[in-house]
């Protein structure tokens, strides 16, 4: 009986310490939605589009930069939505507002894929960017949403 009690307490202690590990509790998965490149100088006007269709206000021109948010694109893993920052007719930054993060595996993939796509957008100045291998679903959604943002910004 004492041995059983000892085994029970040991098991309990082991399970409690397992639940202390960082992946062992439900937590909101932080997804990299960092904005690549510096924001334009001067005032920043934010004009968000609708959530289902890009209906942005006309981007302001001049030294001030503005942000335009693209359509929400439903992929089979979840919604993807891209926001770009435009200054002087150039895309100075891109970031993903939404990417699939329903599970840890998606978060892991998108954690490295999204910064790559953001960077490619600023370099290409268009939606002709390469898909990130291993994240083709997110890449496809990203390109579609990006194109709608570029269209809305008149680029």
């Amino acid at each position: 009986m004492r041995k059983i009690l000892l085994a029970f307490m040991t098991t309990l202690a082991a399970v409690v310490s397992l639940f202390g590990y960082r992946t062992s509790t439900p937590h909101p998965v932080s997804v990299a939605t960092s904005t690549v490149a510096a924001a334009g100088s001067g005032g920043t006007t934010t004009t968000d589009g609708g959530t289902t269709a890009a209906t942005p206000a006309a981007p302001s021109t001049g030294a001030a930069s503005s942000t335009v948010t693209g359509d929400v694109v439903q992929t089979r893993w979840g919604p993807v939505q891209v926001r770009i920052t435009v200054a002087s007719g150039k895309v100075t930054a891109a970031s993903a507002v939404q990417v699939p993060s329903g599970n840890g595996r998606d978060a892991e993939i998108n954690g490295y894929a999204v910064p790559v796509l953001d960077q490619e957008t600023v370099s290409a100045q268009s939606a002709s960017i390469d898909a990130v291998s291993g994240a083709t679903v997110t890449s496809d959604g990203y390109v579609t949403s990006l194109q709608s943002a570029l269209d809305a910004a008149g680029l």
Binding site: L18, T23, V29
Partner: peptide
Amino acid sequence: TWDLAGMLLAVA
């Protein structure tokens, strides 16, 4: 095992 959510528990 170490990085994905709930995987350490699943391995145990």
